[in-house]
């Protein structure tokens, strides 16, 4: 089966900045794929190249097997993009905006589908409102609707929930999940790692224009499962001298120890008690995607696991 998105040795510079430095990636049809990375990692540049908003310096990119340069019409017809910026055309109403966007994609009589999208996104009551009069959340929904007018099989959402309230974020999640269940391939960039962990089946992490991690979300989190953080606060006594080298952090009262196995906890506590100290509080932190992300971005993942 043709990959929904495939990029090969993609490179792009802006002056001295290497925005993309040889990216290889394939997103299969039907996937819910996450693209993570700090600001300036190259996520938006990658999306822009796929969408034809930006020219690549070298490399190749395909949407459903169609080259985004040589066969840009087909490639763009198969792709829906929700941009990061909250942009709108102040001259038009919501329905006019969607009709115009349909027309650009060659669809003249798209009323039934437009009504359906408006309904699903909770925009039906605002259909005839001017874009200017909408709240930020509503404008964001219209952007999602605009990306869907031509029923693209591949949908890219560039931080769709940035600056969006919790309720809208939840309803967008539900909506995007349903699109994915209906067979659309979804690529999501987000700053909320919780969001990526909840939604994405596979994740690529970008840093400095390179893919630094690429795996299923489950595997990425599992890779750190031997990294349990235990925070121990002492009510009385001091931290045993024999255990000082086990500390990863300490401020005198609160001590953090990293364990590779939950079984190590009991002997540790016994040692503390036998040294005459009393424990006031214990917090155990499981690793999550955020931890994976931070470690990956530090580029110290393998090194710290070896310790």
């Amino acid at each position: 089966m043709q990959a929904a998105i495939r990029v090969q040795a993609l490179a792009k510079r802006f002056g001295a900045l290497r925005a993309l430095d040889g990216v290889d990636l394939a997103v299969e049809q039907g996937e819910f794929f996450g693209l993570l990375g700090p600001n300036g990692a190259g996520k938006t540049t990658l999306i822009s190249i796929l969408a034809g908003l930006c020219r690549m310096d070298s490399g190749q990119a395909w949407i459903m097997g169609h080259d985004v340069r040589a066969d840009y019409r087909r490639a763009r017809q198969l792709l829906g993009v929700v941009p990061q910026e909250l942009v709108f055309d102040p001259f038009f109403s919501v329905r006019e905006t969607l009709r115009i966007q349909s027309g650009y994609f060659g669809l003249r009589n798209n009323g039934a589908w437009i009504d359906e999208i408006l309904e699903h996104l909770g925009l039906a009551s605002k259909a005839n409102a001017n874009m200017r009069s909408l709240s930020g959340g509503m404008k964001r929904r219209v952007l999602v609707a605009q990306a869907l007018v031509h029923k693209p099989p591949v949908i890219i959402l560039d931080e769709p929930t940035a600056g969006v309230d919790v309720e809208l974020r939840r309803s967008l999640w539900t909506f995007i999940r349903r699109l994915n269940q209906d067979g659309h391939t979804i690529v999501l960039t987000t700053h909320y790692l919780e969001e990526a962990e909840a939604l994405c089946g596979r994740i690529a992490m970008l840093q400095g224009g390179r893919v630094v991690a690429l795996d299923t979300t489950a595997n990425l989190v599992r890779s750190l499962h031997d990294r349990i953080h235990v925070r121990i606060t002492l009510a009385r006594g001091t931290w045993p001298a024999a255990l000082v080298d086990r500390l990863s952090e300490s401020d005198g009262l609160c001590h953090t120890v990293r364990l590779s196995d939950p079984g190590e906890l009991e002997p540790l506590l016994a040692q503390i008690r036998s040294a005459g100290a009393t424990i006031a509080e214990i917090t155990i932190q499981q690793p999550d995607l955020e931890e994976v992300f931070v470690q990956t971005m530090r580029g110290s993942l393998t090194a710290s696991i070896e310790i």
């Binding site: 969408a51 034809g52 908003l53 840009y72 019409r73 087909r74 763009r76 017809q77 792709l79 993009v81 941009p83 910026e85 942009v87 709108f88 055309d89 102040p90 115009i100 966007q101 650009y104 994609f105 060659g106 605009q146 031509h150």
Partner: peptide
């Protein structure tokens, strides 16, 4: 369109 960023709506479709 360039200043407000809505030029993107014209650049994304296969025009």
């Amino acid at each position: 369109s360039k200043m407000t960023g809505n030029i993107i709506f014209i650049l994304l479709p296969p025009l």
